[in-house]
Amino acid sequence: MTIRVGIVGATGYTALEVARLLLAHPEAELVAATSRAEEGTSIAEIHPELAGRCEVAIESLDPASLAKKCDVVMCCLPHGASAETCKELVAEGVRVIDFSADFRLSDQVTYEKWYGVEHPWPERIGSTVYGLPEFFAEQIRQADLVANPGCYPTSAILPLAPLIANQLIEATDIIVDSKSGVSGAGRSAKVATLYCEVNESIAAYGVGCHRHQPEMADLVQRIGGQEISLLFTPHLTPMDRGILSTIYVRPRNIHAAEVMACWRKQYADSPFVNAVDHLPATKHVSGTNYVQMSARDAGDRIVLVSAIDNLTKGASGAAIQNMNVMFGLEQTTGL
């Protein structure tokens, strides 16, 4: 049976990436898409890349109608608005993969502190499965709602969590320095992401206050079993897509070789996570759902380097991977 997929919030880059990936998926099909601003058009009119390949009509959001058409809905709305829509969709009996941060964190207080809004569905904070199949596949398989991971957190959680779980590094001294392509800022017009602002430039932003910092710490703590202290600084770089995270940790009497061995053991059955001998670059994973990670000794620290595509493993590819798990398919199907 073909998995019927719907997209809520069809105008953004993540929605385009979902549609693109579904075109190559042998067991799933995009059957519905919604947008408040673009009702009455087709998804190909919003995203010309899909012309001649996908002509799904854009409709207004009606959770009951969408639930009848779909087996799973990808909710690509901003935080706050997304939680309300997810609540309505789940109530209608359709499974949901949420791209926002509304269900990623463990507690309501942390969410409301960092996102500045009252949570519309607090009962699901801390009880929604985090969509990282490398650690939570069994829970994802049964879930009615999955919190798709943030892009920056994915690039940090995957290298850090096994090291914390195995007590190979100091938990209270972790620095994550990340560089992202401009697509990570979304498709809506903003002065900071105009061509003349980003071209031939690189800039730090959200220093000490980026909302992905608590997500990184929360998930590494959940998986690793101990409290950590983490400093995160993101940077905007003049490229379309990709994230490169350089992570500085203090080892506990180990070297980079032991880090690589830990990763290879942890991710032996994870098809998209590769511990590589070379230093990863964003071009090595562009357009794919793969993660490349490597480690180097550096004085009294070890430097971890990870690369992902922010639109694929950092968003839409992860959602397809989660969908595959939810419906009993191989994780790699269509990816």
Rank of each mutant, 00 (worst) to 15 (best):
P159S: 13
P153A: 10
W121D: 09
I140W: 04
L160A: 04
T110F: 06
Y115E: 15
M74G: 00
T110E: 12
I164A: 11
W114Y: 12
V96E: 03
T110Q: 13
I125V: 14
G131S: 05
R124F: 00
N166L: 00
H119T: 01
W114L: 10
D98Y: 11
V94L: 01
R187W: 07
K113Y: 12
A185E: 13
P153Y: 09
Q139G: 07
T85R: 07
E55H: 08
V56N: 03
A101F: 13
P149K: 09
A161V: 04
P162W: 00
D177Y: 02
S183L: 03
A81M: 13
L163R: 06
A67G: 11
P159C: 03
K69H: 12
D173K: 14
A147E: 07
F135E: 05
E84D: 11
D177T: 02
W121E: 12
Y130V: 10
I125R: 06
Y115C: 14
C75Y: 06
P78H: 10
H119N: 02
G80D: 07
I58D: 01
I140E: 08
A137G: 12
A137I: 06
C75Q: 09
I174M: 10
V176H: 10
I169V: 12
G150D: 05
E92Q: 15
D62F: 05
N166M: 01
C86M: 14
A156T: 03
S60C: 05
E170L: 02
P122Q: 08
D144S: 12
V72K: 07
R95K: 15
R187G: 08
Y130W: 13
L145D: 07
T128I: 06
A147S: 13
A147M: 00
L168M: 14
L160E: 03
K113T: 13
A185Q: 14
R124G: 04
N148Y: 10
V129C: 04
P63A: 13
D102S: 15
I140N: 09
A147F: 01
D107T: 00
S106M: 07
L77M: 10
P120Y: 11
I97H: 02
D177M: 05
I164M: 02
Y115Q: 13
H119Q: 03
